[in-house]
Design a protein around this nucleic acid. Structure first.
Lengths: 227, 227
DNA sequence: ATAGCCTTCAAACGTTCGTTTGAACGCGAT
DNA sequence: ATCGCGTTCAAACGAACGTTTGAAGGCTAT
């Protein structure tokens, strides 16, 4: 038996973050206690308050650790697209792919906890606790502004209000897909080995969302425009 | 001062259900205490356990009260469509409308608590607690089976697996739209008076979802078919 | 060695949780 | 009138909650 394990024990902070991430995903924020977290992380009960200050601050840290890099990736992917296009309009589907890909890639990382996080994130969009929703909103804001501008340019003909709704629908589809990937069984029939296949999922999501974004304007909207 | 108020006080059971519905929506299940519920309902603390047995049974009752009628409406609407069509294939958009309309109608009922419920429902799809997800799944099962069959007939050319995913996306969009109607402000720009307009929302959702359902098959899916 | 600082620890803090209890109440049937 | 039954009530139960405390370790720099 080696003195050092193959995977050396991470420091207390990281172990707490990993344990919290997994437990928050499994039980939700309110139903996950400090004692559950510290037990799973194999640290003392007081460690959370020592390193993070409070339970709420821990929740915030769990999100920040992964969400900031993820949104940076999103912005970088969008800028890459815009540079390649050299001023030409982007295809809506390409923008969709740039947005969804970073989160889908995390879905494949089951061992490192990425999947836990991304499913947790999907649920956080509809969190009851106001502070958490505001936190998510704030962390998303920079990427959101960039993508909104990109869609406005790519879909220049579309009324702004309609575009806002369609982006809303798009985020909903993504959030739900991330959060509830095991509920697909409700309607049954998905091959288990494909359930977390990011490439396949990106194809499917991009096809669905791009078509939805480009759908003909609904009647009442056309009426409103004529008035 | 009349002896009986204009709106007579409902019986204890209903008062508890109404209060619980509103509080669950506002704070989530885990963070809503029996004392909060009984205080809002103006009943004794022990009343919940007397009338429902436990907190969990109360949660179940909150869902059953509205979900059973709602899904009955959905099935009735679908049968009406099928009778009118007299054996001809249904338009996918018509099926979508039949499914989403009952929940959107509840969204307009702010005073009666329908809006509370439907937003709560949207969140319940991704509930952490396994028992609640299973309950929702069980309550939805009959309607789900009918609509799955209807889509399979309306989209006969589509591979079953692709259809399952697209239905999944569709439920996600609806759930998110119901649960997070105030998050639209993240991307800003929606007229407040239209936010809960069921007719407008149905037009928008139907256009978006029907287009998504009918989207061209993604590449990898076509490849899989060829193999 | 020892002083200083960051970290960990067991124990306890006061509060709130879901649930239970047994007495009191209201009221139609006997 | 009184019995029985469904309901409401104040009070209390033990357990679990997030957080705090003060002492004990473990380390580097002096």
């Amino acid at each position: 038996m080696p003195l050092r394990a193959v995977k050396p024990p991470a420091d207390t902070r990281s172990r707490i973050l990993d344990a919290a991430e997994a437990l928050f995903m499994q039980h939700g924020f309110g139903s996950t206690s400090m004692r559950m977290i510290t037990a799973k992380a194999n640290v003392n009960l007081a460690a959370v308050n020592y390193h993070f200050g409070s339970k709420h601050a821990l929740i915030e840290a769990v999100f920040r650790r992964r969400l900031d890099p993820m949104n940076a990736e999103r912005i970088a992917a969008l800028e890459r697209l815009e540079n390649e296009a050299q001023g030409a309009a982007l295809a809506p589907e390409a923008i969709v792919r740039a947005f969804v890909a970073p989160s889908l890639r995390l879905l494949e990382d089951a061992q490192g906890g990425g999947r836990n996080f991304v499913r947790l994130l999907g649920r956080a969009y509809t969190e009851p606790a106001r502070e958490i929703r505001h936190l998510i909103g704030a962390l998303y804001a920079p990427a959101m502004a960039r993508y909104k501008a990109a869609f406005e340019r790519a879909l220049a003909h579309m009324p702004r209000e309609e575009l806002v709704w369609r982006m809303h629908f798009m985020f909903g589809t993504l959030a739900y897909t991330l959060a509830a990937t095991d509920t697909v069984r409700l309607i049954a029939g998905c091959k288990p080995e494909d359930r977390y296949n990011a490439q396949l999922l990106e194809e499917r999501l991009a096809a669905f969302l791009a078509a939805g974004l480009l759908a003909p304007l609904p009647r009442s909207c056309a009426i409103a425009l004529a008035a």
